[in-house]
Amino acid sequence: MKILVCISKAPDTTAKIAFTDGDTKFDESGVQFIVNPYDEWYALVRGLELKEANGGSVTVLNVGGADSDPVIRKALAIGADDAVRIDAETTDALYVAKQITNYAKEQGYDMILAGKETIDYNGSQVAGMVAELMDAPYVSLSSKLDMNGNTATIEREIEGGVEVIEVNTPFVLSAAKGMSEARIPNMRGIMAARSKPLTVVPASEGSNSTVVKGFTLPAAKSGCKLVDSAEELVDLLHNEAKAI
């Protein structure tokens, strides 16, 4: 079973968010990056579990610059066999999807797994676009994936219940909570990651087709206020918040 897992880097959840270049660029200085949790906890770990049960290989792929290498090494430390980085600066989902597809289409993967979204831009687009460009079926927001030969049984949580889908390989899937449990690497894995191959591939032709015009931060949250009585609460809601 040949599995490709697409991973991206995302700012640590405790990072302070600021922008530069007239609020059009995320300010990365001093920011710690992690593997996007949906990619790591669900897509990668489930990929590894399937490999461990059925044999095969797990390759992780990232479209990005050399500053992605630390998160790629982490994915290798958790257990991926090898890694590919397509050397490109990205702002746009279609561009990323094309880069992934141009690389992956000749490789004969049985499945391409990705997280349901990144925790920074929350685009949720790349995996679906890859499926389209590869002309492969796409199952989004999957919470369970089991393989039986070439047939996958996939569960998706839908409003008020669960949808069960069957699909044959090759397919593309985006992974959500429930798929697997996060794994903490061990020191042996970290040492092994040193010598696992990380191939850097030049980007294929193409350019970003959308332009970010600006980011704005949400209004700062005001502090929480403790009130002693229901009367005081009603008074504040009425006179200060003007909510009632």
Binding site: G30, Q32, D69, P70, R73, K74, A77, I184, P185, N186, M187, I190, R194
Partner: peptide, 24 residues
Amino acid sequence: YQLDDLLTDEHKLIRDTVRAWVKA
């Protein structure tokens, strides 16, 4: 003092791994 800059990527991965294990 941004002392993380004095560490290698592997040092940071090791530290963060132990931190995550301890927390869990």
